[in-house]
Design a protein around this nucleic acid. Structure first.
Length: 444
RNA sequence: GACCCUAUCGUCUAGAGGCCUAGGACACAUCCCUUUCACGGAUGCGACACGGGUUCGAAUCCCGUUAGGGUCGCCA
């Protein structure tokens, strides 16, 4: 087999759709598996929607997912490769040349209003799809498709074929929504005297309601995942699982292994529904396997992105907080809220602390006893603090919770949080005691 | 409406004639762990759309029905 050349050909609509991202992913996996090339072509013929920002969103999403392309459109309108330009808006001359060829061969004809139509062969159209198998279309009643509008601009089906031909595409991997039109594309290739590429139509991603996922559906945009602090490797992992499976009961799988195992015939034929819950879970799995350094870097970047000034926080304190908060969450999105009480000495008290925990008759005296005991603790470590707190509880003959809960509320204003002893250790003696004092004056 | 694709737990899937009284994961429920919330562990709930064939034997093959999705543009 000659070199595999696949392409991802999105049109800039203002977002990178999950369905598109999955199509890009499968193309990329196929190219990587066979050591071929992935080409990025921007189908920006719709001038109304085509803005530099909309194109930038595609680049950003693909780069974020780690789907690097070997050839094609580049940021800022550039082109990389020998078969460009890779922006359709720059290819009018190429299309014109092929229209002329079709007209000269009488494979196309001009309408009275100037539009140009392709003479559809009336013979059965056969598509030998790598995923769906051999499909035959009856074309006896098929109308001749328009390839050039009366205003002179070429239409999608035509430019798509010309570009795939010119760019030497060997395999077209795209959504199943294109399956019914594929025989037209093949007919166009034949009329142009070129062998068509192999086609592979992958199932669609459906929304939870069961219809084709649209831009408006929740979770439809890759940009949302970036904003909410999902890990790119997790989103990519989840997308792999929509229509493909390693077949050994694993869900969390390394991308290099996917590349190694990936091939077209094992792709499922049925559409898959998008399940944000499972993505959330997979993200948690990837979150856990981040190295400490990766996690710190990620958390710092995300918090900065969300407007938390991490540079203003003491380095040791910051990493200490990040470490104890990590196991509580699965997502960057949750970081700001969990971290907030640590960085704000004027922290607020949550509902439960206010109405239950600190309303306990003994709450005040327990916080006072805790403060006194903490004052003289020999070593400010989680273990020692635990020991201290537990001995106070034992002396009173109450459960540890009786001391833990008011202490947590007193020191962070929250009813839930990471291990109290570790929170105290990370806060340090001075800060913790100051916070308890503040609670004593503010609440009591 | 015509044409095309598809059909296993609520969801993603394993399953290519006997290994299936159908396996895993998410979600859900219960219990355990536990200072809270999570995590983790255990258990449970839960599916071969229906009807005909073929076969000694069918989730797996064939036909039909039904259901879902897609395409039928001078949108991409």
């Amino acid at each position: 087999m000659s070199e595999v050349r696949v392409r991802f050909a999105p049109s800039p609509t203002g977002l990178l759709h999950v369905g598109g991202a999955r199509t890009a992913l499968f193309n990329w996996l196929f190219a990587r598996h066979f050591g071929g090339k992935m080409i990025l072509r921007i189908e920006d013929t719709d001038t109304a929607r085509n803005t530099p920002e909309a194109v930038a969103i595609i680049f950003k999403g693909l780069r974020w997912l780690g789907l690097e392309w070997d050839e094609g459109a580049q940021e800022g309108g550039g082109n990389l490769g020998d078969y460009g330009p890779y922006y359709q808006s720059q290819r009018s001359a190429v299309y014109q040349q092929y229209v002329t060829q079709l007209l000269a061969a009488d494979r196309a004809y001009r309408e009275a209003d100037g539009a140009i139509r392709f003479r559809m062969p009336k013979t059965p159209g056969v598509v030998n799809d790598l995923i769906c198998g051999k499909i035959t279309f009856d074309r006896t009643t098929e109308p001749d498709p328009t390839i050039v509008r009366k205003d002179g601009t070429p239409v999608f089906h035509f430019v798509n074929v010309v570009d795939d031909l010119e760019m030497r595409i060997t395999h077209v991997i795209r959504g199943e929504d294109h399956l019914s039109n594929t025989h037209k594309h093949i007919a166009l290739f034949e009329a142009l005297g070129a062998p068509p590429p192999r086609y592979a139509h992958i199932p669609l991603i459906l929304n939870p309601g069961g219809s084709k996922m649209s831009k408006r559906d929740e979770g439809a945009s890759i940009g949302e995942y970036i904003a909410q602090g999902y890990l790119p490797a997790a989103v990519r992992n989840y997308l792999c699982l929509l229509g493909w499976s390693p077949k050994d009961n694993r869900e969390v799988i390394n991308i290099s292994e996917v590349i190694e195992k990936f091939d077209l015939p094992q792709i499922n034929r049925g559409n898959a529904r998008f399940d944000i819950n499972k993505l959330y879970w997979i993200n948690g799995e990837h979150w856990k396997s981040l190295t400490v350094t990766e996690y710190h870097q990620y958390a710092r970047d995300y918090l900065t992105h969300r407007g938390v000034n991490t540079a203003a926080v003491d380095e040791t304190y910051l990493t200490g907080v990040l470490d104890i908060v990590r196991e509580k969450i699965k997502l960057g999105r949750d970081l700001p809220d969990w971290v907030e009480p640590f960085f704000n000495e004027e922290f607020a008290y949550d509902e439960k602390s206010l109405t239950v925990t600190l309303k306990e008759p003994a709450a005040k005296s327990r916080i006072e006893k805790l403060s006194a005991a903490f004052m003289t603790v020999s070593e400010w470590t989680a273990a020692k603090l635990e020991e201290t707190l537990k001995s106070l509880a034992a002396a009173d003959g109450v459960k540890v919770g009786a001391y833990v809960h008011p202490c947590r509320a007193g020191v962070a204003g929250r009813a839930v949080g990471p291990s109290l002893y570790h929170m105290l250790e990370v806060m340090g003696k001075e800060r913790a005691l100051a916070r308890l004092r503040r609670t004593l004056t503010v609440i009591f």
